[in-house]
Structures are given as C-alpha cells and as structure tokens.
C-alpha cells in the first residue's frame, strides 16, 4: 500500500490557550487538527488534573496536527507565537499517512 511521509505535531497546552492556538493554526493554513482532553499529569509547574477543576485555569489539552513536511515550519512558528510564556510541550514525530492530499 502506498504511504506518504508526514509530520505529526503534538502540542500539550493550557486549556485557556486552546482557542488562541487553534485560531493561530487556522491563520497559518493548518486546517486539520484534533483537540483531545488531558486527564492530568505533572511537570516543571507541578501536578495538574482535570478532576475537580472549578475553572479552566489548571486544565490542559492536547492539540494534534498532521501536516506535510514543508508545512511544518509555519505551523511551529504559529504554535510558538502562542506558547511563548505559557506552560506547554511541543513534540514532532515522523509519520506515514495513506491519503497525502488530505494534509
């Protein structure tokens, strides 16, 4: 089966920044992404959990995008513009997709 090389970008970011990030991705021409809820975790800023949050202040979400390799740079520029001073993790991995025209 024919597959095509792509980049998978996973951004873990504060829930309060989700809309800003997805808007920046839209502006950068990244039309496809998936937002996933995150149950909890721990990092340099301490522990956080989705459970028992009275506000969205401490929650995190995962935004996953798969793009063609040549579209990676504008995507990362857009993401970093939003992350800047905020808590978050960005990681990029190589992946293969079946239908290249969709990315």
């Amino acid at each position: 089966m024919q597959t095509h090389k792509a980049k998978r970008v996973e951004i873990t970011i504060e829930a309060v920044m989700e809309r800003r990030l997805t808007e920046a991705l839209d502006d950068a021409g990244v039309a496809g992404y998936t937002v996933l809820p995150v149950l909890g975790g721990s990092g340099r800023s301490g522990k956080w959990s989705r459970e028992g949050q009275v506000s969205r202040a401490s929650g995190m979400v995962n935004v996953v995008c798969i793009v063609r390799p040549e579209r990676l740079a504008p995507l990362l520029d857009a993401a970093l513009g939003i992350l800047d001073r905020h808590i978050g993790v960005v990681n990029v991995t190589d992946c293969d997709v079946l239908r290249a025209e969709r990315f």
């Binding site: 504060e14 309060v16 920044m17 800023s45 301490g46 506000s55 202040a57 401490s58 808590i87």
Partner: peptide, 22 residues
C-alpha cells in the same frame, strides 16, 4: 474569585504561580 480570574491570569500573567492564588 476562583473561576473567572484564575483563567484570565493564566492568559495575561502566565508567570504568576497558580498554586499560590488558587
């Protein structure tokens, strides 16, 4: 406040430690 302001502070003053104000 522990609903509206913490969220606003995370956006506007991300350097402030949420553990303290919450």
């Amino acid at each position: 406040s522990y609903i509206a302001v913490p969220a606003a502070m995370r956006v506007a003053l991300p350097e402030a430690k949420p553990a303290i104000y919450l």
